[in-house]
Amino acid sequence: MTEQIGVSINFTAKPLVESLVRDAALLRLKVERLDNGVTLVDAGIEADGGLEAGRRIAEICMGGMGTVTLAHSALTPGWPLRVHVHATDPVLSCLGSQYAGWSLSHGKGKEAFYALGSGPARSMCVKEALFKELDYKDKADATVLVLEVDKYPPLELLDKIAADCGIQPAGLTVIVTPTSSLAGGLQVVARVLEVAMHKAHELGFPLEHIVDGSGSAPVPPPAPDFITAMGRTNDAILFAGQVHLFVKGEDEAAEKLAHDLPSSTSRDYGKPFAQVFKEYEYDFFKVDPMLFSPASVMVTAIESGRSFRAGRLDEELLARSFGA
Rank of each mutant, 00 (worst) to 15 (best):
V243G: 01
N234H: 08
A129D: 07
H244K: 06
V83P: 08
P272Y: 09
E128W: 09
D141F: 10
Q4V: 10
P169R: 14
V21P: 03
P272W: 04
V188M: 05
M124V: 05
L92F: 04
L147C: 02
A170N: 07
P262C: 03
F205Y: 06
E303C: 12
D150K: 15
L186M: 11
Y269K: 00
H198L: 08
E208K: 11
L317F: 02
Y99E: 12
K139I: 07
T69G: 10
P220A: 10
L81T: 04
L134W: 08
K199R: 08
I227K: 15
R33Y: 09
G185R: 10
I167N: 15
V287G: 08
I161H: 15
T300I: 01
E281F: 14
D283N: 04
E303T: 08
D225N: 08
M290E: 01
G49W: 09
V38R: 00
L29D: 09
V85F: 13
P221C: 01
H209C: 06
E250L: 12
G166Q: 11
K248P: 15
Q242Y: 08
S214W: 04
G119V: 04
L158A: 02
T67M: 10
Y99T: 04
K110Y: 15
V192P: 09
T300V: 04
V188H: 12
P90W: 00
F292V: 02
A87R: 05
D283P: 13
T76P: 03
Q98W: 10
A190E: 02
S93Q: 06
A301F: 05
V219L: 14
V195R: 09
V68D: 06
P206F: 05
A121L: 06
G185H: 06
T143V: 01
H201Q: 07
V299A: 08
A100D: 01
K30D: 15
G107S: 11
P178C: 12
G64M: 06
S263R: 06
C165Y: 13
T76I: 00
E252L: 13
T2S: 08
K160R: 15
L203P: 11
P80R: 04
G311N: 13
A100L: 10
E194P: 03
A58S: 09
V195H: 02
L317S: 04
A47Q: 06
D42A: 02
G270W: 00
I210V: 07
A74Y: 07
A258Y: 14
F277D: 01
F277A: 03
D314Q: 01
K110W: 11
T233E: 13
V192R: 01
D164C: 02
Q187R: 04
D23V: 01
A223H: 10
K14C: 07
Q98R: 10
C165S: 15
A236V: 02
I175R: 14
V297N: 03
S214D: 13
S105D: 06
Q187N: 07
T69P: 04
A301N: 13
M298P: 01
L182C: 13
L34C: 03
F284Q: 02
F131M: 01
H259T: 00
V126F: 06
T143N: 09
